[in-house]
Amino acid sequence: MKTTIEQELTMAIENSSKKFKDEVLLNQFEKASEEFEKLVSLGIVKKRGNNLISITDTHLHKSNLNKPNVKDKYPNDNFYLSNI
Rank of each mutant, 00 (worst) to 15 (best):
Y80S: 01
K46T: 05
T58L: 13
E34Q: 08
A12C: 14
F79S: 15
F29M: 07
V70N: 04
Q28S: 14
H59N: 12
N64C: 13
H59T: 11
S63P: 01
K21C: 05
N69S: 03
Y74K: 09
G49I: 01
P68L: 01
V40Q: 02
D57L: 05
L52D: 12
M1I: 09
Y74N: 05
I84T: 01
M1K: 10
K62L: 03
T3E: 15
F36I: 04
F79C: 15
T3H: 14
T56Y: 05
K18W: 13
R48T: 12
E34D: 10
K62Q: 05
E37P: 00
P68W: 00
I44A: 13
K31I: 11
S54I: 02
N69T: 00
S54T: 07
V70D: 00
Y80F: 14
K46C: 08
E35Y: 09
M1F: 11
H59W: 05
S16E: 15
K71G: 01
M1P: 00
K46Y: 04
S63I: 13
K67C: 04
V70W: 01
N66L: 03
F79V: 12
Y74W: 14
K71Y: 05
V40C: 05
N78Y: 14
Q7C: 03
E34G: 01
M1Y: 10
K18V: 09
P75H: 08
K18F: 09
E30D: 09
S17M: 15
E14Y: 07
V40W: 01
V24D: 02
N76S: 15
L81R: 12
S33C: 07
N15L: 08
K21M: 06
L26M: 09
E8L: 12
K18P: 01
L60N: 11
E37H: 04
T4R: 05
S33F: 10
E30T: 04
F79M: 14
L9T: 11
L26K: 04
K46A: 06
F20S: 03
T3I: 11
P75E: 04
M1D: 07
N50M: 05
H61W: 06
